[in-house]
Design a protein around this nucleic acid. Sequence first.
DNA 1: TGGATCGGACCATCAAGGGA
DNA 2: CCCTTGATGGTCCGATCCAA
Length: 312
Amino acid sequence: METQNVYAQAAPQYYDRNWNPYPENARIQPPFAYTAVRSQNPEAWRSVPYLQPLTGDTPSTRNEMWAQNPVSPRTVSTNSPPSSEQHQRGIPPPRTKRAQVKNACTNCQQACKKCSDARPCERCRRYGLPDCVNSTRKPRARGIKRGPYKRRMAPLVQTQNPSYLDPRPPPVPVIPSPVPVRPNEPKSRLLQQVTLGHRSQAFDLTLDALPALTPLRATTPVPQHFDLGNLPSSNELQSYDFSPTTQSPNDFAIHADQLRQSLEQAGLVSCPASPRFAQQYTPIQTPMVPFMGHAATAPNSPTGLRAFMELD
DNA sequence: TGGATCGGACCATCAAGGGA
DNA sequence: CCCTTGATGGTCCGATCCAA
Ligand SMILES: [Zn+2]
Ligand SMILES: [Zn+2]
């Protein structure tokens, strides 16, 4: 017996990227969680159906809470959770960011647990752990080429009516012409960017998100669901992290291949997988598709995927 | 029931890019 | 020169398992 995730049980209506209703009996379920799309403008959220909280559902994840009451990222972190009283009164819970220390101690890092700035840190003190010292941090890579930027950001000005008030159907994404990929080209030259209207941004995928990008059952909350008339600037919109339900390795292989094809057709580009990524999926029969891995390089972190797609 | 484990959701940063 | 953006490299939530 497979365990269904709680969001699937709620049976909300999902749509694919072309606004076709997502089939209920689909073998692949829609994502169970979307990362908050960070927009300062709460209205912008309402133009992103995927990101709205499920009807009748109390938001449980940060994602869902944020979807109700987004706040700007790249601002000071707070750690106060929304109070339930507020929520019951219909007051949207204050959106908070998860605060994190600049540098976790080795013990906390190993355990994937919250550290604190003090040394010894709170957790080490509480459990009497020895050697509470900062973990080492890899210096940021330099000389990473990005290729030409799309268009320079104009400052965010709210002028137009938001597109969710527009009765017309959402814009159809334009699939860009394929870009040739030469195998030995440096990684950085292979990357394409997501363009939101005039904006450019990448989004993170996890392994399980692959089916979301296949042509068959796309459920990705990608930019065409955005309020294209009122796009947030990049210091408010950083990235999309999302993850659908888990797939079996075989499913993964199938969808990885589908994704590879759509990547090529759409001008998306793949990059070599990290060792861990390859290791995790060695049983796969299908020739492994190389993808670029998203960081998450803490000791026991897996490697996700980061794809780059052109939508302008 | 609480500690150990860990996938991946979530986050901060900072150099490259590019307009002025 | 300076702001914006692309992209990297991290933290730690919460589900799960298992011993006590
Ligand atoms: Zn610690
Ligand atoms: Zn510590």
